Amino acid sequence: MIDVKSAPYAALLLRVCTGALFVTHGLTKLFVFTPAGTMGFFESLGLPGWLGLATMLFEIVGGAALILGVATRLVALVAVPVLLGAAITAHWSNGFGFSNAGGGWEYPVMWAAVMAALALLGDGALAFWPLKRG
């Protein structure tokens, strides 16, 4: 059974925690790796460089949206293929463990599952602009 009193706070916790992680990853791409470095990394994987910029932008804007509770279901749903793509293109060859050199695929796959759960759960408590179903 779902505890209807605590479930909205569980969704809030997932939303804020994962949103903060997305923002952190996006800002790392922006300020540490730089846009040019991020594009170069994506190109080294055989992907178009612009996809690195799009990923960086999604992580920053999407992460902020999750923190605020803006279109949570939509952002979480879009994040699933982004994270699975990262698992396959950037981390698959590094093996399972994320502590492996270059980071394994376990972490982005787990994160994709969390995003899928959040898409199913919805905004939770204290959402700024939830998208209503129905």
Score class of each variant (00 low, 15 high):
124 G>L: 04
118 L>K: 00
58 F>R: 05
38 T>S: 12
45 L>I: 05
123 D>N: 13
7 A>K: 05
9 Y>G: 04
86 A>T: 10
1 M>P: 06
76 A>S: 14
95 G>C: 11
63 G>E: 02
61 V>H: 04
125 A>N: 09
128 F>P: 05
23 V>A: 13
128 F>K: 09
50 W>L: 09
9 Y>W: 15
132 K>T: 12
132 K>R: 14
87 A>W: 00
50 W>I: 14
89 T>W: 14
100 N>W: 09
124 G>P: 01
26 G>C: 10
72 T>L: 05
91 H>V: 08
125 A>P: 01
102 G>T: 10
102 G>L: 07
28 T>V: 08
2 I>A: 15
7 A>V: 07
115 M>N: 10
74 L>W: 12
19 G>Y: 00
71 A>Q: 12
69 G>P: 03
50 W>K: 02
68 L>N: 03
133 R>P: 06
39 M>L: 07
104 G>N: 03
131 L>A: 12
30 L>H: 05
17 C>D: 03
107 Y>Q: 06
11 A>Y: 00
102 G>K: 05
114 V>D: 05
54 A>N: 09
12 L>W: 11
122 G>F: 03
65 A>L: 11
69 G>C: 07
57 L>N: 02
57 L>A: 15
55 T>G: 15
72 T>Y: 01
5 K>Y: 10
112 A>L: 11
102 G>A: 07
11 A>K: 00
7 A>D: 08
40 G>Y: 07
33 F>W: 13
133 R>Y: 08
42 F>S: 00
121 L>I: 09
68 L>M: 15
109 V>E: 07
61 V>N: 06
24 T>K: 10
8 P>R: 02
93 S>A: 15
17 C>A: 15
80 V>S: 01
30 L>I: 10
114 V>F: 10
49 G>Q: 03
58 F>W: 14
9 Y>M: 07
23 V>F: 04
10 A>P: 01
88 I>C: 06
54 A>L: 15
116 A>I: 08
103 G>Q: 05
11 A>C: 10
84 L>I: 14
29 K>L: 06
111 W>R: 03
11 A>W: 00
73 R>L: 07
65 A>F: 05
46 G>P: 05
52 G>T: 03
115 M>A: 12
71 A>H: 07
127 A>C: 12
133 R>Q: 12
37 G>T: 11
